[in-house]
């Protein structure tokens, strides 16, 4: 069978679908001081999985605010710097109007994913961390 670390080189999704791959990628991103990209990406996926229903409305709003405050709000963080202003406004509007849609972070996640695909993921595949692992 194909060893997992070779699968990681196939696509970002193959990498993010494997616990060991995620750990190694996180180590690399921490070195580059941008592990928030990965945390934000998973936070968006986790948020989308929370079904809207009366029982967890409060939790979803609290979580949306937490994601917004930690990653999106201008505080100089890498995620905030990479998300487009229009996308940030859209997320802010959803929170202000308390309309937390499961898809409200989708566009922001897509933008961060594109950055990882174009930048950090190819760098990771050429990094000492990955090469030593293989």
């Amino acid at each position: 069978p194909t060893p997992p670390y070779l699968k990681w080189a196939e696509s970002l999704h193959s990498l993010l679908d494997d616990q060991d791959g995620i750990s190694l990628f996180r180590m690399f991103l921490q070195q580059e001081d941008c592990a928030d990209l990965l945390d934000f990406w998973f936070a968006c996926s986790g948020f989308r999985k929370l079904e809207p229903c009366d029982a967890n409305e409060e939790k979803r709003l609290k979580l949306a605010k937490a994601i917004y405050r930690k990653y999106v709000l201008a505080g100089g963080g890498i995620v905030a710097r990479q998300i487009k202003p229009a996308t940030k406004s859209f997320i802010k509007d959803c929170i202000v109007r308390q309309q937390v849609d499961p898809a409200m972070f989708d566009q922001a996640q897509t933008e961060i994913q594109a950055l990882m695909e174009d930048n950090t993921y190819p760098l990771f595949l050429k990094s000492d961390i990955y090469l030593e692992y293989t």
Binding site: D18, F42, G46, K49, K62, L63, I67
Partner: peptide, 20 residues
């Protein structure tokens, strides 16, 4: 703030792939 961090952490973990 702690509980907000816990909530975020729980959310991030829920999206991670399970051990194969």
């Amino acid at each position: 703030i702690d509980s907000e961090d816990d909530l975020l952490q729980e959310c991030i973990s829920s999206a991670m792939p399970k051990k194969k």
